[in-house]
C-alpha cells in the first residue's frame, strides 16, 4: 500500500492557511490520481467504507459531478444533497442542517454555499472533515488547486510565471483562491478588469492591478478568464455585454498581447461571446478541457489527503 504524504489539516476550507509545502503535497498526489483516472480500472480502495456527502446549497454541475466521481473512484459511498430537495427551503438554518447531517456520521462533507464564511461556520459544528466547494465570493480552493495542477503540467513550474486573472474579480471566489495560491508558489499575479469589478485592497493581496487588457496581458504566460454573471452585465457593473466583450472579452487580438506561448484558462461555465470568444475557448492555446480532467484528480487528492487524517484512517 502506498502511503499518503502527511497533510496537517482536518478540513480544506480555503487556500489561505495552506503552506507552499501543503499545496505541492496535494499537487503531487493529484499527479498520481491523473494516472489512475487514465487507466481502464479507475477504482482505488482508499476510501472504502467511507461516506462522503456532497451538500450543495448552490446549483453546480461541474464541481458536484467532479467531487462525486472523485469520491467514487476512491471507493467512497457518495451521497448528493442539493438545496432543491432539502429542508433548507423549509426554513431550516445552516447550523441545523449541519447537526442533522453530522448525526448521520459521514466521514467527509463537501459543501458549496452562496454565503462567504458559511462553510467555515458549518465546519465548526461537525465532527467530520469538510471541504469547501465554494463559499460566496470567498474561496474555491479545489478550483485553484486544479488550475495550479494544469499550469504545472503544462509549464513545468509555477514560480516566475506571469498569470493574468481577468474579468469579474469582485465577485469571484476563484480569483481569490488563485491569487493566494499563485502568490504562495511564486508566480506574478495580475488582476485585470473594469474598476467596477475590482475589489479594493487587491495590491495588498499580492496582485498588480490593470484596467486595460492590453497592459494587463503584456508578457503574460497564463490568461485566466472569469465568468461574468448575467445579472451584472446590464448596467449595474458594466454597461452592456457588447461593451464588455469589446474591452474585456478575450479574443485573438487581445490574446496577442500575451506571450506567444501563453495558455488560456477558464473555470467554467463559459459565456461565449461575453468574456471569451468561441475560437479562443476551443483554440490551440486553450487548457479549458484539461482543467476539467484535472478537477477530478485534484479532488481525489484532497479526499485522500483528508481521509488519511480521519479517525481509524
Amino acid at each position: 500500500m502506498s502511503t499518503t504524504p502527511r497533510f496537517p489539516h482536518r478540513h480544506l476550507l480555503g487556500i489561505e492557511g495552506l503552506s507552499p509545502h501543503d499545496i505541492t503535497t496535494l499537487l503531487d498526489l493529484a499527479d498520481r490520481a491523473v494516472e489512475v483516472s487514465r487507466q481502464v480500472e479507475k477504482k482505488k480502495t482508499t476510501l472504502r467504507g467511507r461516506t462522503q456527502i456532497n451538500l450543495f446549497f448552490e446549483a453546480s454541475t461541474r464541481t458536484q459531478s467532479s467531487f462525486e466521481l472523485a469520491g467514487k473512484r476512491l471507493g467512497a459511498d457518495v451521497m448528493n444533497m442539493s438545496v432543491a430537495s432539502s429542508s433548507i427551503k423549509k426554513g431550516e438554518t445552516l447550523i441545523d442542517t449541519a447537526m442533522t447531517l453530522n448525526a448521520m456520521r459521514p466521514d467527509l462533507i463537501v459543501v458549496r454555499h452562496h454565503a462567504a464564511g458559511a462553510v467555515q461556520l458549518l465546519a465548526r459544528k461537525v465532527d467530520c472533515s469538510v471541504i469547501n466547494a465554494g463559499d460566496g465570493a470567498h474561496e474555491h480552493p479545489t478550483q485553484a488547486l486544479l488550475d495550479a495542477l494544469t499550469i504545472r503540467r503544462n509549464k513545468g513550474d509555477i514560480r516566475g510565471l506571469v498569470v493574468a486573472i481577468c474579468g469579474d474579480i469582485l465577485h469571484s471566489r476563484v480569483a481569490r483562491s488563485n491569487m493566494i495560491l499563485l502568490n504562495a508558489l511564486g508566480a506574478e499575479v495580475r488582476a485585470v478588469g473594469p474598476a467596477t469589478l475590482l475589489p479594493s485592497g487587491l495590491e495588498r493581496m499580492g496582485a498588480k492591478v490593470f484596467t486595460s487588457m492590453k497592459e494587463g496581458l503584456k508578457g503574460a504566460d497564463i490568461v485566466m478568464m472569469l465568468r461574468l454573471q448575467r445579472e451584472r452585465m446590464n448596467g449595474s457593473f458594466v454597461p452592456s455585454v457588447k461593451e464588455y466583450f469589446r474591452f474585456y472579452g478575450l479574443d485573438s487580438e487581445k490574446l496577442a498581447y500575451a506571450k506567444p506561448d501563453a495558455l488560456v484558462m477558464h473555470p467554467g461555465p463559459m459565456n461565449r461571446g461575453v468574456e471569451i470568444a468561441s475560437d479562443i475557448a476551443d483554440g490551440a492555446q486553450s487548457l479549458i478541457r484539461e482543467q476539467v480532467e484535472m478537477g477530478v484528480a485534484v479532488r481525489m487528492a484532497v479526499l485522500e489527503a483528508l481521509a488519511s487524517n480521519l479517525p481509524n484512517g
Partner: peptide
C-alpha cells in the same frame, strides 16, 4: 477594504 475583499464580503 482589504479585509472585506479577503473575506469575500
Amino acid at each position: 477594504g482589504e479585509l472585506a475583499s479577503r473575506l469575500g464580503l
